[in-house]
Design a protein around this nucleic acid. Sequence first.
DNA 1: TATAGTATATATCATGCTGATATAGATGAG
DNA 2: CTCATCTATATCAGCATGATATATACTATA
Lengths: 188, 188
Amino acid sequence: MSKQNTTRFILLGLLSHEDMSGYDMKKRMDIMVSSFWNVGYGQIYPTLAELEREGLIFKAAGAVSKGPQKNLYSITQAGREHLQAWLALPAEKEYTKYEILLKLFFSGSMPVADNVKRIQAFNERHRQNLGTILQFKSELAGILDTAPDHLYYYITVLFGEYVYKAYLQWADEALRLLGEAKTHADKE
Amino acid sequence: MSKQNTTRFILLGLLSHEDMSGYDMKKRMDIMVSSFWNVGYGQIYPTLAELEREGLIFKAAGAVSKGPQKNLYSITQAGREHLQAWLALPAEKEYTKYEILLKLFFSGSMPVADNVKRIQAFNERHRQNLGTILQFKSELAGILDTAPDHLYYYITVLFGEYVYKAYLQWADEALRLLGEAKTHADKE
DNA sequence: TATAGTATATATCATGCTGATATAGATGAG
DNA sequence: CTCATCTATATCAGCATGATATATACTATA
């Protein structure tokens, strides 16, 4: 697995569909890919500058919607080829970081109530995420045949659904186990 | 959510149980926390040096097992307090990166067979992860009452189980959808 | 008609993390 | 005796995070 800048390819991927500004891309990502990838502005703007220097994208005239002037970007032919080459590679970088699990792992000496609160907050957060993604899923289901991309969007949405549901199941089970342990301790 | 070095607290957490070398810590993490957190040597060794400078850990005499000399570390009282303060904080940093989902999202123009292969590899990888964690789970289940930490270990293992199972379910469903799409295309 | 708040938009930077690479001692196989 | 493998520590370039700064435009409300 080579150490490559993945952000480049996300930005190229978004621009392969339509012209956008950096701000637009962030908004789009928050909606469409946030269940499996996150990028911040601190990575977006420098990468856009880099892609432009390399001739993979270019800055078009900034159409004003509201607020300050946008930098609207377009992808070039070289950019499309760069993206296709990446898509064809099998390498599948993959990692996760959940601070809550880390804290639980080391929290044998902490009050049980603290951990219960942690898990409840986690549960609530992902119940909301699940709600958002299920709404998105039902919208997508109606237009599945209208473009070849839509099936793939649907598949990625399904991933979010399964994973969020797993989080909720785990949280319920963890709370049950902590409740049992507490009840048991109270009896003694 | 402040931008803090999380690795510090993992290392302190591991040392709060027993003395270890950096190499030991990596091995331990690969077994115990790899389903929700990963750290490489590139982060471990510099952080150990930093923790030592700050007086949170100290280097003990290196016991030789086999291979080169180890640096065995111990946690100090200040180190334990540092760890406790972190455990008491509610902040829960959390993020995931799955390159496979990213590629699927942008792969409308790629051959379906490529994506099928990708998902099958993903499936196989996580089937193995699930097997490993289930074995670990059954070992833990037998010693659940022998220490207060064990319940928390069990809870974190459950997380891995639920998440890996979700991955496998998703992969099956995704392959089914791609199979249907292919069959449909073949008929036309 | 001020003015305060919110959404839009770009940019930069210190710090943290990843993944590759270098170095070298101990063990075991053939 | 040499080659492969495991043990063990260390460093670094490049990528990513999260905080912060700056400024325009729209909306509400006082």
